[in-house]
Design a protein around this nucleic acid. Structure first.
Length: 267
DNA sequence: ATGACGGATCTAATCCGA
């Protein structure tokens, strides 16, 4: 049985629960990792997703901001969330599941945006972002023999073709060298493989986010690739398909991010 | 032309996202 994992920064799950339902019905991933649910656990709209078969839900919300949730139609266990940087933010949740005789860990991340000014000395949010990414260095692709998948809104576009203009974004938070190098360090020290760029070559422009502030997101196509799917090499070798649901940016009252999916065959 | 938007919050103006 193929295994499909999706990640989507939903920018308020209560406001966009109908979009999530539409997505689950049409794409039917086994797992959907949501970020920026922007609600507390008891406000999370579980029922419409349960009704579609996503009865296993690991929700780690907080009031107003941030928050992550992993929905699954397969049983999950050992739900865990880690408090990066001891801020008390809800920015991570992980689950274990079994598939084709293996145990796999799935990490769902929402990395801090980092504010406007790319200088940790004067901008505490940027300092927080850099420290968060440094802490991600000890999230390994294989832990105690268990291979992992790491998805989420990492808020960093690491490659030149992950932004609409490498040159013009070098001093813009999300694409500064200190961020892209920090993310690359966590990626390499963790022993990860980038499933999306394994499939869609780095020579091609690829985005998953387009600003709300642009009057027409399709005009000039000024996006960034902020949402990622990484995996342990032994899982990466079993990748069958990658999909970026670009059309979702054009849905009614859309999130500014679109879903990204990976399908693996673990047989 | 990196904002001309959009969401949550002690519903009015403020903070936040990236």
């Amino acid at each position: 049985m193929p295994l499909t994992i999706a990640t989507w920064n939903i920018n308020s799950v209560r406001l966009r629960q109908s979009l999530v339902v539409e997505f689950l019905e049409k794409w039917q991933p086994d797992f959907l990792c949501l970020q920026e649910i922007k609600c507390q656990n008891d406000q999370f709209p579980s029922k419409p997703f349960t009704r579609l078969g996503y009865e296993f839900q690991a929700v780690h919300g907080q009031k107003g901001y941030h928050g992550v949730a992993t929905l699954s139609r397969r049983p999950i266990e050992e739900i865990h969330s880690r408090d990066f940087c001891d801020m008390g933010d809800s920015r991570h949740v992980s689950v274990l599941f079994r598939s084709d005789g293996r145990t796999v860990r799935l990490h769902n991340f929402y990395v801090p945006a980092g504010g406007d000014e790319p200088d940790p000395e004067i901008n505490p949010k940027f300092d927080h972002k850099l420290r968060f990414v440094t802490e991600m260095e000890d999230v390994k692709s294989v832990e105690s023999g268990i291979p992992s998948i790491l998805v989420g809104d990492l808020n960093i576009a690491p490659l030149e073709n992950d932004v609409w203009s490498h040159k013009q974004l070098l001093k813009v938070v999300s694409h500064t060298p200190v961020e892209t190098e920090g993310l690359t360090r966590a990626f390499e020290l963790g022993g990860w493989s980038d499933l999306v760029r394994n499939t869609i070559p780095p020579s091609e422009k690829l985005f998953t986010w387009w600003s709300y502030r642009s009057p027409d997101w399709t005009k000039n196509d000024r996006g960034r690739r902020l949402d990622h799917i990484w995996a342990a090499p032994e899982l990466a070798g079993r990748l069958k398909k990658i999909e970026v649901v670009r059309e979702a940016r054009g849905w009614e009252r859309p999130s500014d991010h679109v879903p990204v999916l990976a399908t693996l065959n673990l047989e």
